[in-house]
Amino acid sequence: MSAPPVAEPQSTAVRAKKKVKAVSRQQLSFGQRLRRDWPLLLMCFPAMALLLVFHYLPALGNIIAFQDYNPFVGDDPLEAFLYSEWIGFGNFEYLFKTQAFWDSVTTTLSITAFQLVFYFPIPIALAVLLNSIMSPRIRSLVQSIVYLPHFFSWVLVVSLFQMMLGGAGLLAQTLRQAGHTPPEIMTNPDTFMFLITSEAIWKDAGWGMIVFLAALAAIDPSLYEAAAADGAGRWRRMWHITLPGLRSVIVLLLILRLGDALNVGFEQFVLQREMVGREAAEVVDTYVYYQGIAVQQWGVGAAAGLFKAAVGILLIVGANKLAHRFGEQGIYSKR
């Protein structure tokens, strides 16, 4: 026992108390525990009920993907569900034979890949840059300004882009007054990828810094001092101390992003699909929406949604395995 003798009596007392507690908990019967804990259970109940109706029930409802669901065979969705015909994997067969569906998958994946390269590093770079600013006043000023757009809705963000860069926007207005023809930015399908990535960066890159700033603050400053004493310059310190300090956070966020590879956002695309056309802006989520609710092919839409969810779970498990192989913790640890 290497603990200092002064602390000894107290720590044994604590341990003894814990032991008593543990024993007494085991001895309580179910009824006794229920009598003791019922208020806590009751407190959990409203949240559980809400989730049951609006989360788990619809999650269960995904089985209409295996039906030729027709809302008109019954008076309400439940009745329609009971009377609709079961068709096994018919919807999936139809889906996998449809070119438009695969187009939406391809578009989604290329957006994910593009944003991994051009979006993902920006919050990291911003955080490292901001962390190197000494003045706390400038730091908190910049932080409060760049966090702000995170709280804007996609409608607002797309609207602001439209007002700044659109055909009647500020940029076009300025260019026209100077005698130039303004470029088409908001409606050009070829540059749509740049546009949506810029919007995503404008909205969320600042907010994305938070995690990295916290990780940077957790790095022991004496490491930097020791490295400087050993003659490491600014860049070497960044390479050997700052980046390794961020490594596990970066890996964690990469895993989450990979697991979300088919999830690139929905409102952003629904809002701009009309402007740039279906070919550039159709992602899996908008396909689900237009197939299911707009065209009323409910079963096919649900099948596409289910396919997306299944791929998402596979991706996240796979990415996590990869992280373990690289010696990182990932989102859940190895058992």
Binding site: L57, P58, I64, Y289, A302, A309
Partner: peptide
């Protein structure tokens, strides 16, 4: 509660539940 992170309701069934 934690399971909600993994299982999503899906847009179409949600629509059917809410309208139902």
């Amino acid at each position: 509660f934690l399971l909600t992170f993994l299982i999503y309701p899906g847009m179409i069934p949600s629509y059917l539940v809410v309208t139902g």
